[in-house]
């Protein structure tokens, strides 16, 4: 049994991987394809944009994936409120590639942090229209609960603002979200490296979504693989159950049979170097 992927079902689909991969900002389509293969991702994200009417040679990113069996997760980036997000979601669905949508409503140009109220409104409306809704949301446990009640198929709290690579700024909140959620928790946004991905999984996330940390890595294909391995490692570590953190050391071996007597604790007044009488 593959414990690292076992059991992640979203919108009725059993996913092969807990890694969701974004498709933006790669050095080239070739690298993107190779990174996708290395990541093992089953869900890939996209944005919806106007066709450039002047550059007809430009083509949709989809042509690079037509040979793969994937779940397409278009986002509503560029929407500033629920109305715009709903419009973008409907356009995405009309492309005929499924009914998943990542609600992404950023009202602040520099932080790109999600607008919680509009995100909740859009989630409600789109769930009612039959979409499989995965809202990108603030890492607030109560808000994630509300989104779940509004019909979200999964919640996607951010680790830190999109593209910053700052990692998980509030592991405490994220742990709460994972503990309380009845829908899968996919940590989205802000992760910078494999360590962050592993941390998210250890905190109890069901998966992660990354784009920039892979696409802008010096070697995107290697980073895609690192993310895949980190998710497996973090997931297994979570399932294995970490030891509690303690203040004092515990030796790995039993004390019985040791060759020499245990050292006495030194007095707090005499620094180690001073009592040795000057090593230099």
């Amino acid at each position: 049994m593959d414990r690292s992927t076992n059991g992640l079902v979203i919108g009725g689909t059993t996913l092969r991987s807990r890694l969701f991969l974004g498709t933006g900002r790669y050095p080239s389509p070739v690298v993107m394809r190779q990174a996708l293969a290395a990541s093992g991702a089953h869900v890939v994200t996209f944005a919806i944009r106007r066709v450039n009417l002047d550059g007809v040679a430009e083509d949709t990113v989809l042509q690079h994936f037509s040979d793969r069996e994937l779940v397409y997760l278009p986002n509503t980036s560029g929407a500033a409120d629920a109305d715009e997000a709903v419009r973008i979601a409907r356009l995405a669905r009309a492309a005929g590639l499924g009914d998943w949508v990542k609600v992404e409503i950023s009202a602040h140009p520099r932080s790109l942090l999600p607008d919680p109220l509009e995100t909740l409104r859009a989630t409600e409306r789109l769930a009612a229209e039959g979409f499989v809704v995965l809202p990108y949301t603030s890492d607030d446990p109560m808000l994630c609960k509300r989104l779940e009640e509004a019909g979200a198929a999964a919640v996607m709290p951010g680790g830190s603002p999109i593209g910053t690579g700052l990692g998980i700024l509030n592991p405490y909140n994220l742990g709460w979200i994972a503990e309380e959620a009845r829908v899968p928790v996919i940590v989205d946004a802000g992760l910078g490296s494999a360590a962050d991905a592993a941390q998210a999984m250890e905190l109890g996330a069901d998966g992660i979504l990354v784009n920039t940390p892979v696409a802008r890595a010096r070697d995107p294909v290697a980073m895609a693989e690192a993310m895949r391995l980190a998710i497996e490692a973090g997931r297994l570590s979570r399932l294995a159950g970490r030891i509690p953190k303690k203040r004092y050391a515990t030796a790995s071996s039993e004390p019985e049979g040791r060759l020499f007597a245990a050292a006495e604790p030194r007095s707090g007044n005499a620094p180690a170097g001073a009592s040795r009488g000057g090593a230099r």
Binding site: G22, T45, A47, V61, L91, A94, A95, I162, T212
Partner: peptide, 30 residues
């Protein structure tokens, strides 16, 4: 004008003065 037009309907849907048309596609994104 804010409503998705399924492709099958393109040949029937008229374009009129002051219509607002959007043609969109998927691009890379996260």
């Amino acid at each position: 004008n804010g409503e998705v037009v399924p492709r099958a309907g393109w040949s029937e849907v008229p374009v009129r003065e002051d219509d607002r048309i959007e043609f969109v596609h998927f691009v890379g994104g996260g």
